[in-house]
Design a binder for these strands. Sequence first.
DNA 1: GCCTGTCTATGACAGTCGTCATACTAGAAC
DNA 2: GTTCTAGTATGACGACTGTCATAGACAGGC
Lengths: 199, 199
Amino acid sequence: MTDKERGPRERMVFSAAQLIRRDGVAATGMRDVVAHARAPRGSLRHYFPGGKEQLVNEAVDWAGRYAAGRVARFLAGMPEPSPSRLFAAMAAQWIDEYGSAGFEAGGCPVAAATVDCSEAAESTREAAAAAFARWTAPVARALADMGVPAARAEPLATLMISALEGAILIARAERDVRALTTVTRELGPLLDAAATPRS
Amino acid sequence: MTDKERGPRERMVFSAAQLIRRDGVAATGMRDVVAHARAPRGSLRHYFPGGKEQLVNEAVDWAGRYAAGRVARFLAGMPEPSPSRLFAAMAAQWIDEYGSAGFEAGGCPVAAATVDCSEAAESTREAAAAAFARWTAPVARALADMGVPAARAEPLATLMISALEGAILIARAERDVRALTTVTRELGPLLDAAATPRS
DNA sequence: GCCTGTCTATGACAGTCGTCATACTAGAAC
DNA sequence: GTTCTAGTATGACGACTGTCATAGACAGGC
């Protein structure tokens, strides 16, 4: 999560994602991004000739890849994986961050890009859709591996991500992780039941 | 849904909600709002001395009340109400709009305000939290009336709204109602099962 | 040496934003 | 009539925004 000697270009994408998830796309200026990334402003045009739209799209793309990577790591570190445990791990990432660092860091950058750019920048909308897809895929694959029938793996993965994104929204508004813990508790049994069709 | 001889003040709040849910808060200018509402720009300061923040807060408030009102009307028009049918009706409102009018109108204004203002305007964050609460309350009450145990009524209502908000996000990004129909189908059985603890 | 390409630095551009100051109209109160 | 108030109209202000033009730094190739 730290800078760790990445190039200026990568730092800018990373900083853009952080600022977007906190303030939204429109409220995030390119000058803010370079300042946050401690990157030279003169390089903005050089690395992102497509302007702000390109920078935002790459930030969304980065966020989608990051989310997918987290899912893989959750699964790798799980001795006895189950659908409810996977969902709990995904939600716990947010519960833990809000609990330890507060709500200042904001929500999901993909959600922010969807809200701010869906009707204005077609390419950003596509980037957000791609990010959601890249995030859903490993979840669905994991569910299938856990015994969820193939036909229900992807729908359930969509349900998981929908509930998580919505709970993040409510948690931010309430400044309380209640919504996140609630959906974890209420959705878990349903998910596990789908993994064992015959009991 | 039409203007129908409301006063200029109310029209501005209504227009603000419409523009916010489409473009986000930051991208919605006050000049856009008065133009969309065909209201006199000179009245902006008069009706909303608190500036943009007040206008946004009232739009969020209006959206919360509107959502709560819709829930009541769904229930009133339902011969044999059940949790799954209520959720299906809530989701169908979005599925129908996206199917008939396209995605141009945008998503949920409360979600947009949460994403854009949570870390910048405390009062708007509170307005969003209040809107979610006002929306959740009638849903929870309806669930309790349908036989859901009191302790689970509100958590399930939160789950319903979380899943709905998340599915709206995904549907907008994908320009496809798939996510909305999916959560409706997958969440229904769980909701109805909670209404009949003993079968 | 020179040349070339990548990267950086800086300032200016035109546009938009929310806000505010000022002045005008209409109508009711008395 | 006058006075007061709600509502409207208009223009300007400073502070941004994203974009762009221009120039400089600094390497590697030859």
